Simulated scan of single mutants.
Amino acid sequence: MALNLGRYGSREIMDLQIFNYGTKKPIMTMDYATSAQTENTAETVYARGGAGNPKRIAWHGNKETKVTIETQIFTMQQLALLAGEDIVSGSHEVYKREVVTVEDDGTGKLQLKLSKPPVGGKNDVAVFETVNGILGHGQDVDSITGNIVKLAASATAAVGAEVDVYYRQAAADAHKLSFTAKGFPPYVFLVGDTVFADETSGDFVSAQMQYYKAKLQPNFTIKHSPTGDPSSLSLVFDVFPDKVNGVETLYDMILHED
């Protein structure tokens, strides 16, 4: 049965597939956006003249297309695209702060039991007395064995007192993304899938947008707040013309049957 063109309404999200521009290898899929829009702009200049100075001739140019995606869910792959860097998986050091209670080690000396073994030597572990959440006097560390920190004889903290401990631990299973000074988003090929409602037939028609060459703008903000709506991450893609069947094309819209 032929797919007849109709009169359409749009009120559905566009799911996005992102591919490497050169190899067309899939990078990621985004089926969790809260909004997606394709903005098309161009500039028009006019020649004017005569009585009343009306418009006589129009010239169009500076055509641009932007695709903006808003998400309240994000992935590391999404951030890696913005950073222009790869995700490195493996063991990585992370900084940790713990509030622990000073103990007697059974010989009259003071010790602390951390939740994780610290990285480095005794000079890499900082211990402070704390009162009402305020750092007080620093406590010298004598030695470290596993997750046990022995305090030096000069320590002034009392048994049963709480101290703040700052140290680094090795997270064996971690994923790191570096935001470097030289890293910027790469060119990508975008495919967007959505549906339009047909007023006449009452059915939905599948629509696919193919943006042949796009590049993320590197600006983004992630908000951290315990109140209000979840943080929304905006992804803005500039779309560039690419030669398709000999024609410089920004994107194609394809209506199709599933």
Rank of each mutant, 00 (worst) to 15 (best):
L177K: 05
G146I: 02
V149M: 12
K150V: 01
I222E: 03
R56C: 07
M1V: 07
A153R: 13
H224F: 14
D31P: 02
P54Y: 14
G90A: 12
G6S: 15
N123K: 15
L114M: 01
Q17C: 05
D86H: 05
R7A: 13
S115Q: 08
P226C: 07
K66S: 06
G246Q: 10
T71L: 04
V94Q: 12
F220L: 03
G50W: 14
Y166E: 12
D193H: 09
V102L: 04
L79M: 10
V188Q: 07
G120T: 06
T107A: 09
W59C: 03
I57Y: 15
M209A: 09
Q17Y: 09
K25P: 00
M253I: 13
K109N: 14
V88F: 01
V102W: 09
D229E: 15
V131R: 05
V141N: 00
G22T: 10
F19G: 05
G160P: 00
L250I: 05
V125D: 02
L190Y: 11
Q217C: 01
T65P: 00
V188C: 12
L255A: 05
G160D: 10
F196R: 11
V191W: 11
D198M: 03
I254M: 07
P226K: 01
A47E: 14
A36F: 12
G192Q: 13
Q72E: 14
V131T: 13
S10Q: 14
A36W: 12
H224V: 15
P226S: 03
N4G: 03
I222C: 01
T227L: 10
K215I: 02
D31T: 13
D258G: 06
M28F: 08
G183P: 04
L235N: 10
V191R: 13
G52T: 11
I18F: 13
G246A: 04
A171H: 08
I144M: 07
H256W: 13
G22D: 12
V127Q: 11
G136K: 12
L82P: 00
A197N: 06
F184K: 03
I57F: 15
A58P: 02
I27P: 03
N147M: 06
T29F: 02
Y46H: 15
A47Q: 10
S89N: 05
Y187V: 04
G106T: 04
L135M: 10
G52C: 02
G228M: 08
V149L: 14
I144S: 06
F19L: 12
T65K: 06
V102I: 12
H137G: 01
L255N: 10
K113T: 13
A214P: 08
I222A: 02
V165S: 05
H92G: 02
V100L: 08
Y212R: 03
P226W: 02
A33L: 11
Q37W: 02
Q111F: 02
M1C: 04
V99I: 15
G108V: 06
M30S: 03
S225C: 05
I73F: 14
Q17N: 09
D238R: 11
P118K: 05
A214D: 05
D164S: 04
I57T: 11
A207D: 06
K116W: 02
G22M: 09
T107D: 14
L177T: 06
K150L: 05
G90W: 15
N4E: 09
G160K: 09
E43C: 00
G138A: 11
T221G: 00
N147W: 03
V141W: 11
M14I: 15
V99K: 12
T68P: 04
Y251W: 13
M30K: 07
L177Y: 04
